[in-house]
Nucleic acid binder design. Structure first.
Lengths: 118, 118
DNA sequence: ATCAAGTACCTTGCATTACATAGTACTTAA
DNA sequence: TTAAGTACTATGTAATGCAAGGTACTTGAT
């Protein structure tokens, strides 16, 4: 969702909204409370968004690379250390934009549904 | 959204919902009233879903191939003939499934948004 | 000590999708 | 007959979701 220079491209947000949509709920989850991959998977599952490791880890890497999120290592008592992800300032801004795009999309689609049901 | 044998794969619906999302509004538009590509583009634009020819035509071809839609040729008074698309029975069934998946997704995402905003 | 099981993170290759771009073909009007 | 408008099609690229397989750390049972 970012250009090669790292800037956030607003025009791409709506395009992506119709394609890779997953970034949005992941940003929401991380934004609500910093956490690590397996917990994000759990929360997505609770939200009926079934995602697998092979999808989430590359997504987190991409978001780290484009500086929407960052992480700190945290020791665990039941296994290897964890990467605790949190939103950057840029991530918060991006989330605002995506949320706006989502609401617009939501309204538009629900309008089309009503038309269809008539 | 269909398997190689042409059957509709329910499991894939939710996956696609997070990826190629566009099929849904296009099915809604065609389902509301049979029409042709340039008009579909107009309706999508009115619904704030900016799509270009290069996206829509291949999508229509895919949906024709998987028998969600069909078309009849219709003469035009202002140019070449038009392919008027309409839903098949399978298309109507698929649309029901997709609509259900959409409503579920809609609810889930809006719940995540509320969590984030707290 | 050693080994199995659980946990956490990462990588590769594939199918699918959206898009930009360019092209073909029909119709009408200058 | 030529140009402009309309409608449909084809090709190549980047991005995404996913299956599958792999590495590495920790704990607990043998």
């Amino acid at each position: 969702m970012t250009d090669s220079d790292g800037t956030y491209n607003v025009a791409k947000v709506e395009s992506q909204m119709r394609k890779g949509f997953l970034e949005f709920p992941v940003l929401l989850i991380i934004g609500t409370k910093p956490t690590y991959a397996p917990d994000i998977l759990k929360q997505l599952k609770q939200a009926n968004l079934l995602v697998v490791e092979g999808t989430l880890y590359p997504l987190l890497s991409r978001m780290k690379r484009s500086e929407l999120v960052t992480y700190v290592w945290e020791e665990s008592k039941s296994g290897p250390p964890r990467k605790i992800y949190s939103l950057t300032k840029a991530g918060e801004n991006a989330l605002e934009l995506i949320e706006t795009a989502w609401k617009k999309l939501d309204t538009s689609v629900n309008k089309l549904i009503k038309q269809y049901e008539k």
